[in-house]
Design a protein around this nucleic acid. Structure first.
Length: 99
DNA sequence: GGCATGACGCTAA
DNA sequence: TTTAGCGCCATGC
């Protein structure tokens, strides 16, 4: 399965995302060499172990919104991490730069 | 093989 | 800004 090499590219691209920056699923997919496979990226991230070192919290959808239901544990965790990196989260879950 | 589901994306209204 | 519809692909039943 050549998907494995693509996964490695995905992990590399994700690890290369600077602090205080967010990237969309589609962008990550393109960076991994699989343009248009945003759902594939989401599926991979959903299977990441809890002890991962990857900045999965810097990944949002194309609308710069956290792709978790408001009020869910995952939503709070991601928003907390992003805020810790200097980003601002609106009440609707949209991520914006403080700049 | 068919159908439903999901950490998605885009366009239209 | 939100909702709805359609397209897309991987998985599981």
């Amino acid at each position: 399965m050549d998907n494995i090499s693509s996964e490695e590219r995905l992990y590399t691209a994700l690890a290369s995302v600077p602090i205080g920056t967010i990237i969309a699923y589609g962008e990550l997919a393109s960076a991994a060499g699989l343009p248009g496979r945003a759902r594939w990226v989401g599926r991979i991230l959903s299977q990441l172990p809890s002890d991962t070192q990857l900045p999965w919290h810097r990944v949002t959808n194309a609308q710069r919104r956290i792709s978790f239901p408001l009020g869910s544990d995952r939503f709070f965790e991601q928003s907390a991490r992003l805020q810790r990196e200097g980003l601002q989260i609106s009440s609707t879950g949209k991520v914006s730069l403080p700049n």
